[in-house]
């Protein structure tokens, strides 16, 4: 920050939205754990709108019809320790506990992960599998966007220049839904994912009736694997695992980079997706 950079820490959401509308070019700062990393490569912003601990957007509350609303400002530590998240929306709790390490979890927020929407954002496949909706607000009003429509490309989102993310809405899950989450990173903490994925699978009378399978780090954005979701429908667990494995072939086109290889990502993604079905508890 140079002396010329303006800085505002609003008292409430209304004030934040007013500043946002007036200064759309200002940097929106939550925990800063993404922004600090890229700061050295970027131009100094004209101003900073600091949302850290902004009242009213950090709480985890029960939503309508048994769902859960997680405020954008909730940190990974808060999400990872919330009993409701752990019980009914476990992929998000498990992702929260594997993000960075304690310092990052105490500072990084859900809103920041959604705001960046990097292909390796660990919460994002969980949001996809849990069918989450992102709620945004502006002086014009509020709207909700399903995560599937939120991330529009490599680190681009549907956020408008005057909007702020306020929450993620997690709908209740149907009875008989099994949940799973796996992260495969470069090491066991402070690691960027090589492959990660989340799954929500509904099993009725031993047969998979519905499945949402989402993967990260295998495309330019977090994605759902429609081929697998279709292939497993109507199959018993073991058969579903085999069908999922077959459907994974050619379903993704991951890349080689300094962290891993395309072939490794492909293979592990296939193993994990098959294991979501065969390892289901």
């Amino acid at each position: 920050m140079t002396p010329e950079t303006a800085y505002t820490r609003p008292r409430d959401l209304a004030e934040a939205l007013a500043v946002r509308a007036a200064q759309p070019s200002w940097m929106v700062l939550a925990g800063g754990t993404d922004l600090m990393v890229s700061a050295i490569h970027k131009r100094v912003p004209a101003g900073i709108l600091d949302l850290w601990r902004l009242p009213g957007v950090g709480a985890i509350t029960e939503g309508a019809g048994g769902g859960l609303v997680i405020g954008a400002g909730a940190t990974w530590l808060e999400i990872g320790r919330d009993a409701r998240v752990a019980k009914a929306w476990s992929p998000l709790a498990l992702a929260a506990r594997e993000i960075g390490a304690l310092q990052i979890q105490a500072r990084g927020t859900l809103g920041g992960n959604i705001g960046t929407s990097s292909p390796v954002g660990d919460s994002l496949p969980a949001l996809l599998a849990l069918d989450a909706e992102i709620e945004v607000a502006s002086v014009r009003g509020r709207r909700r966007v399903p995560y599937a429509a939120w991330c529009t490309g490599y680190r681009t989102t549907a956020l408008a220049a005057d909007e702020l993310i306020v929450a993620a809405h997690l709908p209740p899950l149907a009875a008989g839904t099994h949940l799973a989450w796996r992260k495969v990173g470069t090491r066991r903490a402070q690691s960027i994912s090589k492959v990660m994925g989340a799954a929500a699978m509904r099993v009725e009378c031993g047969v998979v009736t519905d499945a949402r399978i989402a993967l990260g780090a295998v495309a330019d954005r977090p994605i759902r694997i429609a081929a697998v979701e279709q292939a497993v429908r109507g199959l018993a667990r073991a058969a579903a695992a085999e069908a999922a494995r077959a459907a994974m072939r050619g379903a993704i086109r991951p890349i080689d980079d300094v962290r891993s290889s395309a072939s490794y990502r492909d293979l592990v993604a296939e193993n994990l997706v098959a294991r979501f079905f065969s390892g289901m508890i």
Binding site: A189, S191, V258, R259
Partner: peptide
């Protein structure tokens, strides 16, 4: 160390992996 044409391609703490306590 990922060398590409003589350059260290993973010259950052993020990508030049060393073990943590968890490892």
């Amino acid at each position: 160390i990922v060398y590409r044409e003589g350059r260290v391609a993973n010259a950052s703490m993020t990508n030049c992996i060393v073990p943590t306590f968890a490892d």
